[in-house]
Design a protein around this nucleic acid. Structure first.
Lengths: 348, 348
DNA sequence: CTGTTAGCGCCTTCAA
DNA sequence: TTGAAGGCGCTAACAG
């Protein structure tokens, strides 16, 4: 069971009694194309198996200038299950074309970002997914402008890099429709705000919401500002309720805000759905709240998958690489990725 | 702004008027060792900067048989912020030694796992982190036994691979101490169970809990079995409370269980901390509940970082690579990674 | 149908 | 203090 020297293609060729070239063709599945005889083919495959041959991709990469490896640069990939789902989707899509993912978390640090990008480019990645935790505008580092890149959850107005974004506007309208379908067109309040410069989701969700309510002859009654987290939302809504107002519905700008709203309502002995609550995110949290929160999901996994597809797509299909693709946000999140992708394919 | 041919080391050398050898030495920081003159050194560095030289690691790897890249194989890396924190810790630690991470999510599929491992080995990763979402026993694939590997959050009884685990037993005792310090030594119930074969956390947490309570002259009053999630815990405890029993404390086997317990208590108009609740995980959820949940954190980030350190550690320090390292679990999770690592360093 | 030859970009002995 | 030469393992023209 001792470990000999690394097994090389030449070793396989020698054992099979052929040249390295022939072995290379066969092991790369080009036997047919090269019209190699069946016995030779088999001898080589057997030799490879017996020797436990494993191609050295460093050598191959040096020769072919490709690595079948994709870099993922993101500010906070792993933080929370929000963006990490994007990785899962990208990873699954990468697998379809035998690519592997190399990750780099920049922690929002520009210097670190540059370093990680350099490291990836030195390692000859075939492309880079540039992803952000929040949907927003960015300025991608210079070094990326000359590379094959797809933006995920962000856009760079200063470049024409392809991007994949959730359809926030449509999501806002969906939220409105949920309220309208429940017979509620007035006394609907939005909870949250989007204070970060460059942030996109908040504004678009609100716009869609307003538009949707007006379409139904209603109107958004107001916005309760607060940071997008449980405690700030709880405090803000709690205080707001003290003023004695009686809302018919709350549209929360994310699930954590909704949790805070649930708590604030509970303090006042108010109950969902006597007051209707709708939210955005589609996180696990929505399923944990009682009653279960209706939440419009950000399809992180699909976004990752779609971005990956666009990145590795053959050049021929690259015509629309200049476009921004938009992935629909849907209520709930029961569906599996393939299911939802079927719906998606009609739209992009 | 057009894109020329790739810039090679020779290009830099030519431009600086030296040989590739000299340029190589200088750019790899060996000028001093090779006693290269200052002017030469500067000329080469300038040339590299002007040309935007970026070393081709495929070539270097082919020559040196190292990639400064580490593979991370895990069942569900990205799922939830639980295990993804491990990635963050590992990633940060990797950066310290200029390593990059390559990820592979196996989704618990053995065939896929083998394929991903092969792909990584073909890409010549310098080592592999083998991580699991839940703390448990595993049997690592054959292919890994001959490689440099560190297990994270799991152990393989059939091999002597080094591993990093959270100290679940101590965590159980900590939970007991929290109850005891609050003056509660009886009528304490544990909520949850660990039905997965090979799972370690549940049993160890319970054992530590029992031991800790007995040390203080108390005893664990019982265990309410349920799956480790919000709804099952809510249902189980809700029903259990119907029997009219009046607990003094609940030790929940994770934070989601605790959320379910909060809900069940609330239904019966019972309030925390009239009934004391302690939990394990240290997830964000703990900070969202009202009142804030006391939770003993699984230090995923530290585990990832420590495992990474052990993996890239110079061979000299590898003497203890056979050991299982244990990372303490602590209450709350306000501390930054460096802070907590200081506490950690005494223990491993 | 298969082998010969050359070279991807880099590092590293050896010689000067 | 620097340069010349060789080879890591693989693929791709080009012969035959």
């Amino acid at each position: 069971m001792s470990r000999r020297r690394r097994v090389t293609l030449t070793d396989v060729a020698v054992r099979a009694g052929v040249s390295a070239t022939t072995a290379s063709y066969i092991l790369n599945g080009r036997s047919a194309q090269m019209r190699i005889s069946t016995p030779t083919d088999e001898r080589v495959r057997n030799a490879a198996a017996e020797l436990g041959y494993r191609p050295n991709r460093s050598a191959r990469s040096l020769r072919t200038a490709t690595t079948t490896t994709i870099g993922v640069i993101s500010d906070f990939v792993a933080s929370g299950h929000y963006a990490s789902q994007m990785l899962t989707g990208a990873s699954a899509a990468a697998r379809e074309s035998d690519h592997l993912l190399m990750i780099g978390e920049t922690e929002g640090d520009a210097a670190l970002e540059e370093r990680l990008i350099d490291e990836m480019l030195e390692r000859q990645v075939d492309g880079i997914l540039y992803a952000t935790l929040t949907t927003r505008q960015v300025t991608v580092p210079q070094a990326l402008l000359q590379q094959r890149v797809v933006l995920v959850n962000c856009i760079d107005p200063g470049s024409d890099l392809p991007a994949v974004l959730p359809d926030e506007l449509q999501a806002g309208r969906t939220a409105a429709r949920l309220m309208v379908d429940a017979g509620i067109t007035s006394e609907v309040y939005a909870v949250g705000e989007d204070p970060t410069p460059g942030a996109l989701s908040g504004a678009l969700r609100l716009e869609g919401l307003r538009y949707g309510l007006e379409e139904a002859g209603g109107a958004l009654a107001g916005v309760i500002p607060c940071d997008w987290d449980v405690v700030p939302a709880r405090d803000a809504v709690s205080q707001w309720l003290c003023s004695g107002r009686m809302p018919r519905g709350f549209v929360c700008l994310n699930d954590r805000v909704a949790m805070g709203v649930y708590q604030a309502l509970s303090e006042r002995r108010l109950h969902v759905p006597d007051v209707a609550v709708v939210s955005f995110d589609g996180s696990d949290l929505a399923t944990w709240l009682q009653p279960r929160l209706t939440s419009i999901a950000v399809p992180y996994d699909e976004m990752g998958a779609l971005a990956m597809h666009r990145l590795v797509e053959p050049e021929g299909a690259a015509r629309d690489l200049l476009a921004v693709a938009t992935v629909p946000m849907v209520v709930g999140w029961g569906g599996s990725l393939p299911d939802r992708r079927a719906a998606l394919s009609r739209l992009v």
